[in-house]
Design a protein around this nucleic acid. Structure first.
Length: 563
RNA sequence: CGGGGUGUGGCCUAGCGGCUUAAGGCGCCUGCUUUGGGAGCAGGAGAUCGUGAGUUCGAGUCUCACCACCCCGACCA
């Protein structure tokens, strides 16, 4: 590829105000260009990288016995209605209509399509297990696109769906786990594998493959000894006993002219934060009821955990009006003691969910459902009885657990019978001739996000440093004054040998060409100058460590072919 | 969806009611010159100032609405 002819050349003054390195570097170097928020053009240099990522994934998927196919991008809306996902998806489903008025969802993930395809065939136990996958554009009407390729509204995903018996499933899950480890290793990405929450996808367990990065959106905890990791939404922790040896004292209401925060409460009573009860009030739009979450004052509520424990779907914070008018309470002074069972105006149900940490304290204090009134010596069971008790606490780092942030580049889900239960005829014929539901899993990798994660972890102040396996080229040739003929010859011979080469044949200053080479980030750079031309050698420099050696043309070819 | 911010040639910025022809830098084009870290000189093309209303004798500049984008929160590959 001659840079003089390349469409979408590097330009250092594009994207200067982008906050995320990968967003800025990929834009400056001419790999991507934004269309509108969250939608990107993948430019000629970018698509090379994208294709290399795709190839690595495909190789490992095929090696693991998965079979590639491609599904329609428009999904008949009835399929999504069959599984109730028109309303419960975490991402906003995008819909389109054809001229006959038939409704389609723009595919954001394809579990229903995979099941619908499989049930069109007459499957028996002899066909199981199998795993089908595709690379295709996914559409998600994200509330907020962010950070270049990190969070977009359209992206290519490798999505795989496995069909098996329950007994066969564990092997497939492990096989995909291993394949993912190899895929990311081939891209020189270090990943943590964290147990995570299945969310709207369904099923009972899943694992996220996360590249540690400050700009990532996943918060997770890693056991420093075993390396085992948990996404914050599923991390379970013991929060220790505080004062359960104390005797239960008499419940007492006191005047408490204070602010509305937890800090105000602790300061006013001069008592430790952990002895306070934290009350967070939600409303679940899906089940149309209030959910009062209560927890020990030094801990925070994790909404994903609360969603599970309360069997809710769509939690939002309750408004001050709802707290005052419907629940007879006061913002900042909500209390489980005497908390209403239903809204006094709306009649809507109100459930109380208590974190297990409340069992670790005695004689707690907190609001009294009245402005500027607090209760002292609140005790669970005696003074309030939660409807549900469980783990709804946000995990915190401690001696054993390190907190990390990262970019979720892939995940593997156990789906179990979730879809085969919801969808008709999601069955195979067993050895005994009976119709049985199949057991499923699904496995996704976002290619653009992976590309961004690589740039986040492979760069310096001058630009990108691509791992050789996914670099847009093996070599970047820079022709200096007096080296043009040598560069031409080298370029032609490498191209005819099938080597991917970027050749900077532009009429620019040496500095400009070198700076662009650093920005683009090809792992090896060759310089042809008057000096090298005379000696009939080529100056080859490593982008990562700057090591330089003088090589004959055929030595260089060998180096490239062996790398 | 809530909060904050920004919209002026491809990019960055100036202009903030009347200096009239919207200015400058980067980039782009032409010519000369130059080639080991983003060169120089000369010339040139390119904007009805996000959109639409309104105020005014007069709007890039003031008001309102809308739109787009960026940043912060709740979701995910």
């Amino acid at each position: 590829m001659r840079l003089s002819q390349l469409f979408a050349k590097p330009s250092k003054n594009e994207g200067l105000d982008y906050k995320i390195d990968s967003h800025r570097l990929l834009t400056q170097a001419g790999f991507i260009r934004e269309s509108t928020a969250g939608r990107y053009y993948m430019l000629p240099l970018g698509i090379k990288v994208h294709q290399n990522i795709e190839k690595i994934i495909r190789d490992h998927m095929n090696k693991a016995g998965a079979q590639e196919l491609i599904m329609p991008v428009l999904h008949p809306i009835d399929l999504w209605e069959e599984t109730n996902r028109t309303t419960t998806t975490g991402f906003e489903l995008m819909k389109v209509e054809d001229r006959r008025g038939a409704e389609f969802a723009l595919g954001g993930t394809a579990e229903e399509m995979a099941v619908d395809l499989v049930r069109k065939f007459n499957i028996s136990y002899r066909d199981l297990p199998f795993n089908i996958y595709q690379f295709s554009m996914k559409f998600r009407d994200e509330l907020r696109a962010r950070g270049g390729l990190l969070r977009v509204r359209e992206f290519v995903m490798k999505d795989a769906y496995s069909f098996s018996t329950e007994e066969q499933f564990q092997d497939i899950y492990e096989q995909m786990w291993d394949a993912y480890i190899n895929i990311f290793a081939d891209m020189d990405l270090k990943v943590d594998v964290a147990a995570a929450d299945n969310g709207y996808i369904g099923g009972e367990y899943c694992h996220e493959f996360i590249v540690e990065s400050e700009v990532g959106e996943s918060r997770y905890l890693v056991n420093s000894k075993t390396g085992e990791a948990w996404h914050e939404d599923v991390a379970v922790q013991e929060h220790g006993d505080k004062n359960t040896n104390e005797k239960e004292a008499k419940l007492e209401e006191v005047d408490a002219p204070r602010g509305k925060t937890m800090e105000d409460g602790a300061k006013h009573h001069n008592l430790p934060m952990w002895q306070q009860i934290k009350d967070v009030l939600y409303f679940d739009e899906a089940t149309d009821r209030y959910v009062l979450a209560i927890i020990r004052g030094d801990l925070d509520v994790n909404e994903a955990k609360l969603t599970h424990v309360a069997k809710a779907w769509d939690l939002r914070a309750a408004s001050d009006e709802e707290i005052i008018d419907d629940l007879n309470s006061a913002p900042g002074f909500i209390s489980p003691v005497g908390f209403v069972k239903k809204g006094v105006k709306s009649g809507k149900e109100a459930v109380m969910v208590a974190d297990k940490s409340l069992r670790s304290i005695r004689n707690a204090y907190g609001g009294a459902n009245k402005k500027d009134k607090d209760l002292l010596n609140i005790n669970i069971d005696r003074d309030y009885q939660p409807d549900i008790e469980g783990d709804i606490a946000m995990a915190e780092p401690n001696e054993a657990m390190i907190e990390k942030r990262g970019i979720e580049v892939g995940n593997i889900f156990q789906l179990g019978y979730h879809y085969s239960n919801l969808m008709d005829s999601a069955e195979y014929t067993s050895k005994e001739g009976k119709r049985e539901k199949y057991y499923m899993g699904c496995y996704g990798i976002g290619l653009g996000r992976t590309m961004a994660a690589i740039v986040e972890t492979h760069q310096d102040e001058k630009g990108i440093i691509w791992p050789a396996s996914i670099s847009p080229a093996s070599l970047h040739i820079v022709a200096m004054r007096g080296g043009e003929d040598q560069a031409e010859k080298l370029y032609e011979s490498l191209v005819s040998s099938g080597v991917e080469v970027i050749y900077d044949d532009r009429d620019l200053s040496a500095g400009a060409k070198l700076a662009d080479a650093d920005l683009i980030g090809v792992p090896l750079r060759a310089i042809c100058s008057e000096k090298t031309s005379k000696k009939d050698v080529i100056e080859v420099t490593s982008r990562s460590d700057g090591d330089t050696q003088m090589l004959k043309a055929d030595e260089l070819l060998n180096t490239l072919k062996n790398s």
